[in-house]
Amino acid sequence: MTKKSNLSNKKWHLVVIAGLSLLAATLLSRCTEPTQAAVATPPAPTLPVIQVSQEPVTTYRDYTANVEGSKDIEIRPQVKGILSHIYVDEGAYVEKGQLLFQIDPSPYKQAYQQASASLASAEASLKVARINADRLEPLVQRKVVSDVELQTARASYEQAKAAVAGAKAAEASANINLNYTRITAPVAGYISSIPYKMGSLVGDNDDQALTVLSETKQMHVYFSMSEKDFMDFKASYTGASLEEKLAKVPPVELILADGTIYGQKGKVELVEGSFNKDAGAISFRASFPNEHGLLRSGNTGKIRLFGQAVHGILIPQGATFEIQDKTFAFLLTDSNKVKSVPVQIAVKKGNYYVLSEGLKPGDKIVLQGLDRLKNGMQIAPEAVSMDSLTKANPY
């Protein structure tokens, strides 16, 4: 009985031990599975990479500009009267000498007719005065009449001559005023707004002009530079005087309001003599041909002023990021690991930076996905050529 009892106890112990071992193995398996999954290395991200090179780049700067006609002429009446006809419409193109407005000429015609009549009367009186003077001369020589009468006749003749001169001046003045009732275009150009209507009373003392006529065959584009930009501008060109420097400025481009480039280039002609103290800037003027009338006074845009060609590393702005006012790029190092390096920007050109420091020819940098990167992180680089990039997005 005792031997059987001991045997049963041993079997029971073996079953318990086996069960505990199985339980321990199960628990260990469950604990180790998540740990192995947690330490699994994720695949390296595939990111585009470009190889940089040093190349000559022509830099430029853009300045906000206003377009005006080379001649913006206020059309004003020279005489007072009722505006009887308006022969042009707002925005119309007119030729030099074309009739624009007509002021009622009736009172000025009457004044001219009166002046002409006065001239005719004065000329008739002059003839009578001359006849009298001529008649008395032989009588004085024969001492039939006194010399006083002759001198009086001659004085009357001179007075009649003066009256004729005055009458001629009055007639000419009346004729000028009559001609002023016809208002014509002094140059070819475009008509601006017309604030008056037919029947309006207009005069030479009006505050508002009848219209403004813009001569547009040659356009002036005005822009301003800050004091620093002006100092850089002067340092960029050789010459003893500002006029000599301006003569060496290359042709400039006009960027229109819709972002397109005007088809013809202009020339910087004039610079203001002094800085505007309030704005802290100095004004320039560029002249552009406008044979087809594409530019109008009042247009806005930007003047693109080109600088000299510089050699530098050209990289897209999107391949950089900023930290505390410093600019960085991710450099691809050995084993396809990335490292952030600071770069020094020389100039900005469109959507690109020209670098003076930070990268050297042959370096490779990450083009996109910079927000996912950290120093030492490994990537799967996908090569992108700089040529294809600049073709798709020119600088």
Rank of each mutant, 00 (worst) to 15 (best):
L27W: 00
L27T: 00
L27E: 01
L27V: 01
L28F: 07
L28M: 09
L28V: 02
L28T: 02
L28H: 01
L28Y: 06
S29V: 03
S29A: 10
S29Y: 06
S29D: 02
S29C: 03
R30K: 11
R30T: 03
C31H: 13
C31W: 14
C31M: 14
T32L: 04
T32R: 09
T32Y: 05
E33M: 10
E33Y: 12
E33C: 02
E33T: 12
E33P: 01
E33S: 12
E33V: 14
P34W: 04
P34S: 07
P34I: 01
P34H: 08
P34G: 08
P34D: 02
T35D: 11
Q36W: 10
Q36F: 13
Q36K: 14
Q36T: 11
A37R: 15
A37W: 09
A38L: 13
A38K: 14
A38I: 04
V39M: 12
V39R: 11
V39D: 11
V39E: 13
T41V: 14
T41A: 10
T41Y: 06
T41F: 10
P42T: 02
P42R: 00
P42V: 05
P42C: 01
P42H: 05
P42Y: 00
P42I: 01
P43Q: 10
P43W: 07
P43M: 00
P43T: 15
P43G: 06
P43I: 14
P43H: 05
A44R: 00
A44P: 11
P45V: 08
P45S: 03
P45R: 00
P45A: 03
P45C: 03
P45M: 04
P45T: 11
T46W: 03
L47M: 03
P48V: 09
P48M: 09
P48Y: 05
V49T: 02
V49W: 07
V49E: 01
I50H: 07
I50W: 08
I50M: 10
I50D: 05
I50C: 08
Q51I: 11
Q51K: 15
Q51T: 15
V52P: 04
V52C: 04
V52H: 01
V52K: 09
V52Q: 02
S53V: 14
S53L: 08
S53E: 14
S53Q: 12
S53G: 10
S53K: 11
Q54P: 01
Q54N: 11
Q54I: 15
E55I: 15
E55S: 14
E55T: 15
E55Q: 15
P56D: 04
P56G: 02
P56H: 04
P56V: 09
P56N: 06
V57L: 08
V57Y: 08
V57M: 05
V57A: 03
T58V: 15
T58C: 00
T59F: 05
T59L: 10
T59P: 06
T59N: 09
Y60Q: 08
Y60R: 02
Y60V: 07
Y60E: 06
Y60A: 10
R61P: 08
R61Y: 07
R61S: 13
R61G: 10
